[in-house]
Every structure is written in C-alpha cells, then in structure tokens.
Design a protein around this nucleic acid. Structure first.
Lengths: 329, 329
DNA sequence: TTGTAGGCGTTATCAC
DNA sequence: GTGATAACGCCTACAA
C-alpha cells in the first residue's frame, strides 16, 4: 500500500495524496476529502523509511546508555522517550556496555542509522574515544549529554553538581555526629572523581583526620556493596558512617551492617546517591542524594527538541542536588 | 558521502562500490582493493535508511513493553537486544503504558517504521484490541510474545506455566505449616488469572477452608504492597502466609509486616513472583517464583531470528517455573 | 569483470 | 489546484 495505490484509486496524482497526508494547503476541499476517505478506508500508513530518505531526517534519536538494566539509567531513557514521542521521534535505546570500543561502536551505529540526534546518558561518555567518535560520526547532529559534557560545537551538557552534593552528604553525617566516614565509589568516571573530591574537600573542611576517612572501590551491585562493607568493618571497626556513590552498593552495605549486628543509623549512618527506587525497598529505607534525574531528562529532551527545531541553546547547564533523607541517616 | 562519491573517486560505477560494500563476488581483486581503500579512507558508512528502502527490510525490530521502568521487563529487552545486535538488528524498545489505545498506537508505530519483527513482552498484550491491531498492521512480519500468545498465523508464543508455579508456591507454604494464605495480584491479565486459578486449585487440593484464603488486588508498586498488606493484617489477623503475584508488592508487604511487628517467615511467610533483582534488596530477602525470564528472552530472540531468516518455527513453547527460596519462606 | 537502468516510497520544485 | 519530474541513497537485474 503506497501513495500510488491511493492516488490511482482516487484518480489523482501521488503528489496530491502526499499533500493530503502532510496536511499541506492549496487544494480543493473536495479532493482533500476524497483522498482522505480512501486513506482511512485502506488503512494507509506512510512508510517512515522512505520519508526519511526523501526528507533527510529519520525521526529517530539514539539514547546511549551504559547499562539499561540499571533503574536510574532506564528511568532517564523512559522520560526522554516519553517527551520525544509526541514530536514524532522514536528512540533507539541502546545498551553500550562499559568498554570504550563498545561505546564507539554504538556511536557508529547511530551514524549508520542516520539518527537525527543523540543523548548520552551518564558521565561515562565523557572520554577521549567517545569525543573522537562524535567528531567523526555525529558532527552534524545535536548531541546532548546528561551528567556530562564534551567540548565540541554540537554537544550540549546538562551537568549536576555532585561534588557539592557529596559535600552536603558529608556535612549531614558529621552534623549528626558521624565523623569517621568511608566513601564507596565504583569506577573512575569523571562524575565519580568529582564525588571523591567532594568527599575529601568536605572531610577536610570538617576537620576530620586523614586517618579517619577511607575510600573504597566497588562496582555497581548489591553483592559488591555487601562485600565492601564487610571489608570496611573489618579494616576499620570504628567507622561511623558511609557514603555510597551508588544506591545499589548502599543497599548491599545495609545488609552487611545488619548481618554484623550494627544498628542503623545509630551506630553507623549511611547515604547513597541517585535516589533510585531501591531506596524504598531496603530496610531501613536508604537516605540518598537526589541528583535530579527528573530535571536531567526534562532538560535533555527539551534541549534536543529545541535543537532539532533549529532553535539556539545553551552549551551547558548546571543542576544542583538535594538530599532525600529516609531512615539511614 | 554516498557510494557515488566513492565511485567517482575510484573511477568505477556506484554499482561496483555497492558490490564491494556487500562483499559480493565477481570482480577483480584490484578494483576491490582500490574501492575498499577509499571506503576506509573516507570513513564511509552506508545509509541504513536507503538500504532499508531498497531491500525492503529495515533491520529494525520493535520490543513493546508495558513499562520499561520495571526491572523484569527491561531485563528481557536487554537480553533480546543483545542477541539481535550481532545479527545487525536494532531494537526499538517502546514503552506502551497500560491502556489498550496506547498499545494499539505502539503497534501502528511499528507498522509505520516498517520493522522486520516485533516482540511483545508480557501477557498484557494478550487482548482482543492488540490481536486486531496485529492483524491489521503487522500481519506480514513475525511477532513473538513472551509469556503470552494470540492465535494468529504470524504470532509465536513463549508461555510460562505460572498456574503450576503458583500451585508450587502454595504447596511450599502449606508444607512449611502456613495454611491460611492471602494472594495479592495486580490487574487481571491472562497471566494473573492463571495465577489466581493456580492459587485456588492448590488451596482446595490442600484442603484449606474457603474462609482461610483471601484474594486481594494491588497494583505493581512497593507502596501498594505496603497498603494492601496492612489491610490484610487488619482484615485477617490470623493470616499465615502471602503469595504476591509480583515481587515489588511483596517488598512493600515485607515492610508492612515488619512495621506490624510480625516475624518473617516464622509467623508469616511470603513469596513473590518474577525473581527480580529487588528480591535481594529487601530484608529479609524475598523468596520468589522464578518464571524463567532468561530462557524466555533467549527463546524469543532465537525464534525471531529463525523467522527472519526464513526458518520454520513452533507456534508455541511452554516453560516451567522453579522456586527460588530465600529468607521469607 | 564492470556498468546502465530502473525501482524502493516519499517529498519538493516547477510547470500548467 | 494539480500533476509531471527529479531527487533521496542504495540495490539488483540485465546488458556489455
């Protein structure tokens, strides 16, 4: 079923049918109605692929995510997809995995698909190889990064001041009487380096001795959080509080503390980051740094749409965290 | 950058370039090398949109999901996407929402995008309106349903015997001394009706009095699970066990039991369904019916790929659940 | 071995 | 108002 079929049936040219479909003006009401009726009757659906070719726009946008199984990430994708759909854009949500090669591969795929725009979710994409890949493959479409930025003319970044956020977390714990703190963070993305810096800055500002602050690395999983917390307790039985750079690890840590017979938050206080749904699942419920996922995705889709419609846009935006206290602080 | 640009640079015809790109035989090694070199040099990437139009296949497959924010669902999408990518297929993961209209809309969108195949995740798509939409819009491409089936010539279903699974759950609880059971389930999808039937069948078989079995409806959320459990405790203080048709509700129920001072599993035992990641997050860890998500998605991608490659395939497959016991039973 | 011509379904530019 | 015609980028007979 093509516009030609409709055209033949209506006794008009394909071009006229196209006009009707696209709501163009400049035709008699009679022909418009006649064509529209046939369109409905045949249940005609335009072929977006052909449209894409003719219009030089695919109405496809790519959302690249490290791991779509992680609630926080997919939530962002969910919001962006919802915002873009009404504008006629379909989202190609793509799981890249951790390796640089996979990320670059994903970007090449976006080029191949000729997407109209791309969103990169997470500071993990803030690296040289991704930067080069964008320069090579996506230099002529808008690229929006959430919680990240790369200095390229077509890249827009929505940043979150997580350094300050972590400082707030530390201050909260110290204010509540927990001075000897451990900081658990996963790999060294820029975002995590910021957090680390925030931790150290604020600990210093609060006058906590170097000997009473410990930094541990843990990957993003409940199990890992459990292991690392167990280790912390063994290494430093005098620990009074823990900041986890990701909620999942904190959930594991909570369990480890429980199994060790520690009372939360009385003996040891705990705070995570992302304010994700798992905060409400664990016991006690996890306090967490709200790094503004909602606004992040709102801004991302807004900027993307603006760019796609040819409007100008700021290169960088900064959002600020708030703390969502629950039962672990 | 098109094949014509390459062709001009190489002093050959576009057709020859196309041949090289697609690894067709029948040309001198010299021209092949010459063209390939230019391809690499220019960093040429074929336009999939144009390819799609010419080949009458988009290499796009749609994955329709009720709510991509629910771990269990996105996990399936993750697996399928991973399986399909190596075969050159991109996944259009689409969040449909609960309403029938939205589901039908999503199917129309798939038609418009001319996807090569579709996966429908969850028995929620097992309804008349979706069936009609498939008949109208997707009758000439393979459709695979996970945990669902519709009697149409191009639809394949991978089913899970959840009725039997719930029977096993009931039996487990009764065997452990919990006779007075409540069953919490969300909306009435076919899958949930099956579960309900399983619950009633097994309760009868175990000789539990009608007065000591209660069925409650709750939507899919921790908060809802909390509310409903609180209500159950109030309505029937003698309840000895709860089966939740979805893990999330069970997680909320656990918290409600805790707040009410009930000991788990001693006083009240609990079991969820889906065996999703939240089972490991709550305290105590949730026992759950493993409804074979991994196999479900494996079979789905396998069948889809088989169909896309023109191979024959069974119309229906049945998988069987197992119980993953943790700390609530 | 290589090139020409036509087609995939749609839109845009001109004529009429 | 409406309709040829070309173009989008690629592929596949068929011809040379």
């Amino acid at each position: 079923m093509t516009i030609y079929d409709i055209a033949k049936a209506a006794g008009v040219s394909a071009c006229t049918v196209s006009r009707v479909i696209n709501g163009k003006s400049g035709m008699s009401e009679a022909t418009r109605e006649k064509v529209q009726k046939l369109l409905d009757e045949y249940g005609y659906t335009p072929n977006e692929t052909a449209r894409g070719l003719a219009n030089k726009e695919t109405k496809l946008i790519g959302i690249l995510i490290l791991d779509i199984r992680y609630t926080f990430h997919i939530q962002i994708a969910y919001n962006i997809q919802s915002e873009l759909l009404p504008h006629g854009y379909c989202s190609l949500i793509l799981n890249t995995g951790h390796s640089d090669e996979k990320k670059v591969e994903a970007i090449r795929l976006m080029e191949q698909r000729r997407v109209d725009g791309v969103v990169l979710v997470g500071s993990t994409f803030e690296c040289e190889s991704v930067k080069n890949a964008i320069k090579e493959s996506l230099s002529d479409i808008p690229v929006v990064m959430t919680n990240g930025y790369l200095p390229l003319p077509n890249v827009h970044g929505i940043l979150v001041n997580e350094k300050e956020g972590i400082e707030d977390c530390v201050r909260l714990l110290v204010d509540k009487g927990h001075h000897k703190l451990a900081f658990v963070l996963p790999n060294s993305t820029r975002s995590n380096l910021d957090k680390r810096e925030g931790f150290q800055t604020e600990m210093e500002r609060q006058g906590v001795a170097r000997e009473s602050q410990w930094i541990y690395e843990a990957s993003t999983s409940v199990e890992d959080g459990y292991q690392i917390m167990t280790k912390i307790l063994k290494d430093h039985p005098d620990v009074e509080g823990v900041v986890c750079a990701e909620d999942l690890a904190a959930v594991g840590a909570i369990r480890a503390l429980h199994d060790a017979g520690k009372r939360i938050p009385k003996e040891i206080a705990l705070i995570g980051v992302d304010n994700s749904s798992c905060c409400e699942m664990c016991y006690p419920k996890l306090s967490s740094l709200n790094n503004r996922m909602e606004q992040l995705s709102n801004e991302a889709s807004r900027i993307l749409i603006d760019c796609l419609q040819g409007r100008e846009n700021p290169e960088r935006i900064m959002l600020y965290c708030t703390i969502q206290e629950r039962e672990t602080t």
